[in-house]
Computed example of a mutant assay.
Amino acid sequence: MSSTDWDVENQRYSPRVPYAAQMLVAREDSAWLVELQDLSEGGCGIFRPERCTLEVGQVVRLYFFDQPGPALGVDARVARIEQRTLGFEYLEPQSVPPTLG
């Protein structure tokens, strides 16, 4: 599937890539350290953290990091909430994985 093909089942233009890493999800005065499940150019999926109070449609900032030091911040919208997972849609397309400049 090319990045311009529509995946009807998953409602996305770019394929998901399994990806294990940590990320910080920040919203106003709350933040959660989470485990990534998968990535695509248009968004990502995470394993839902305990006591998560996010709602579909909320805009958050996702901080991707793989070691101590600078982290890449990406704005995203909560696209789906399931019992064990959350999905985010980036506000701007990103590389896979997202990287600093």
Rank of each mutant, 00 (worst) to 15 (best):
P15C: 11
P18Q: 04
P15V: 11
T53P: 04
R61A: 12
D7N: 15
A79W: 10
E50F: 13
R61D: 13
G43P: 00
V60Y: 07
R84S: 15
A20G: 10
G69I: 06
S30I: 12
S30E: 15
R80G: 07
Q58G: 01
G73I: 00
V60C: 07
M23K: 01
R80F: 10
Q22C: 08
I81Q: 06
L72P: 07
L24T: 14
R12Q: 13
V25H: 02
L91I: 04
S14V: 02
V78D: 02
G45K: 05
E41V: 08
A76H: 05
F65Y: 15
V17K: 14
E55F: 03
V56G: 02
C44R: 02
D29L: 05
G57E: 06
R16L: 09
G87I: 04
L91N: 03
R12I: 07
L33I: 09
Q37E: 15
T53F: 10
R48C: 10
I81V: 14
W32I: 04
R61G: 01
P70V: 03
A31D: 13
V25L: 11
Q37T: 07
V17W: 06
A79F: 11
C52R: 06
R16A: 12
V56Q: 12
I46Y: 04
A21E: 04
Q67F: 12
I46A: 00
Q37Y: 07
S30L: 13
Y13E: 11
V78N: 00
P18F: 05
D38P: 01
E41F: 08
N10L: 15
W6H: 11
Y19K: 04
F65K: 02
Y13T: 13
Q83R: 15
A20S: 15
R77E: 15
L86K: 00
R27F: 14
A79I: 06
L91Q: 11
V74F: 09
V78M: 09
L39I: 02
F88W: 05
T85N: 06
D66W: 15
E89Y: 07
Q22V: 04
R77Y: 06
T53Y: 11
R51S: 14
G57M: 03
L54T: 04
P68Q: 05
G73Q: 10
A79E: 11
A71G: 15
Y63N: 09
V74L: 03
A71V: 09
D66Q: 14
D38V: 08
W6S: 02
F47D: 08
E35L: 15
M23E: 03
V34D: 03
C52D: 03
Q22S: 11
R80D: 10
V56F: 05
E50Q: 14
Y90G: 01
E28H: 12
R77V: 12
A21M: 06
L62C: 09
L39A: 05
A79G: 05
L24G: 05
F65E: 00
V74T: 07
Y19R: 00
L24Q: 12
E28Q: 13
D29A: 12
P68Y: 01
E82C: 07
S40I: 01
W32T: 03
F88L: 06
V17N: 12
L36Q: 06
Y13S: 11
D7G: 08
N10I: 11
Y19Q: 02
N10C: 11
G87D: 07
L62V: 09
M23Q: 02
E35H: 14
G45L: 05
Q11H: 14
A76I: 03
G43D: 01
I46H: 01
A26E: 15
